[in-house]
Design a protein around this nucleic acid. Structure first.
Lengths: 263, 263
DNA sequence: CAGTGGTCTAGACCACTGG
DNA sequence: CAGTGGTCTAGACCACTGC
């Protein structure tokens, strides 16, 4: 439409009513823009914590009005994928700088102000390269037998072991992750994933059950056998709903609880 | 500003920079409109399931542009307080008609398609008028000793007792709720609350822990003593964050799990 | 001061609903 | 067909940031 070097959008205009019935028809402009922005994020054109181009620049780049870009960014901001700062610009959201540690950890102390009890103590039990079982592969949407990294940790609050967790990561994007790097790292794992591997987790899906501790679990958490524990299976996703992590954790809930807000 | 009978808005214009520091300053127009809409909902001017006035009518009623009304409604729709239907209008959201039964119940079967196993079996154990203990009163934000209604139920899926729950409701808004009405009612309790008492729950806050069944609990759920159970304490709120219900439930999670999506 | 996002307006056209 | 919400535009002004 213009002489710019820009990807053309606007593929929607005439004879719109002849798409197959049941097909989502064509999406509104702002959805196409949103999709383009997600593509740029996916290919790390703008990295977590960085400033993306201004609304004006994007609107001219895509040859749409500022309002249309705005609506696309609005949605991404409401999904915590971008964050806007008046007077400065729009940033790619990040786990690294956020004061709210533990974006996905819903475990909070029964009493006491926040989830501030000093950063949790971490103890890495092991971290090995292995191959995905059928079950793990299905959850990570990879092929059975593909390389995966498997780690186990204990997290403590106030020096009390509270969380026992296993983590599975696809081997390719996380190549080079070792037990030492896990142990040396301070702060949320998701920050490490961003800075070291360029993988940003955007959302997660969890399944919770109540279970009781077996012998090895009770030893690691220093509790009696048969203590009730909250079992949490979490799959975390990057952009475009690509699964990138599986966690299976056991939470000790005698001094903490899992908090959830239902909208 | 005009000769209309409308509540005046627009109280923001001049000398805006002399509010006390820390005070939220004055809110944008669309927030004021949103607040006015919430007031109308709160005083049941439009009831659950009903159509609210069109955007054009609201914009002339409040003497703002359609776009401003639109932004206010957008937010209410994203909070599941209103639902828009193209070509028809904007409705007050309701638990009664929604095909998604159990707005706040996150318990789903481990296998099987949906939460469709026929509507759950309900058995009301008791339902009594009593007075709020200090603990209950605090959670419902009423005074200790105020009248409350206390009920206990068992819910079954596929004829298996699965949920044992206690419910506390403030006595005033729910005056007249009896065990019979509870027993006779089909479908989600929240639908009954809307149709019979004009109380619509908008959001809820939950605390989860893992526990084990004691003797009376194991009898009611027909399970062995010390079976692990998911303990869920839920406070549900109407418009404007007024708490209207407290539930304490025990979920049997051997064939079901608690599902949660983290944004 | 210029540049950013944030709000508000006015008007155009589209897509869907129902009579 | 008229009425509704859904999209898109263009332009104005405000509030905040940093130089």
């Amino acid at each position: 439409m213009s002489s710019s070097t820009t990807t053309s959008v606007h593929a929607n205009s005439p004879e719109s009513s002849r798409s197959a019935p049941g097909v989502p028809a064509f999406s509104p402009l702002y959805q196409q823009i949103k999709s383009l922005l997600l593509q740029s994020l996916q290919r790390s054109e703008w990295k977590p914590g960085e400033l993306i181009p201004s609304e004006m620049e994007l609107s001219s780049r895509y040859s749409v009005s500022q309002g249309t870009v705005r609506k696309a960014i609005d949605e991404l901001a409401s999904e915590n994928i971008l964050t806007r700062k008046q007077g400065k610009g729009t940033y790619v959201a990040t786990h690294a700088e956020t004061q709210v540690q533990y974006r996905f950890l819903q475990l909070v102390p029964d009493v006491g102000d926040r989830n501030q009890e000093g950063p949790a103590g971490r103890q890495v039990l092991d971290c090995k390269k292995t191959r995905a079982s059928a079950e793990i592969a299905k959850l990570l949407q990879i092929a059975t037998g593909e390389p995966v990294i498997h780690a186990r940790r204990v997290l403590s609050f106030l020096n009390k072991p509270t969380i026992l967790e296993e983590i599975w990561l696809p081997g390719i994007p996380f190549k080079g992750l070792t037990a030492e790097r896990l142990s040396l790292h301070q702060g949320p794992l998701y920050a490490l994933f961003e800075t070291e591997f360029g993988v940003r987790m955007v959302r997660a899906s969890e399944k919770l059950k109540a279970v009781t501790a077996n012998e090895s679990q009770s030893e690691l958490l220093q509790i009696p056998v048969a203590t009730p524990l909250l079992s949490v299976e979490r799959v975390a996703f990057t952009y475009k709903d690509v699964p990138m992590e599986l966690r299976r954790a056991l939470y000790l809930t005698n001094t903490h609880h899992y908090h959830n807000e239902l909208g």
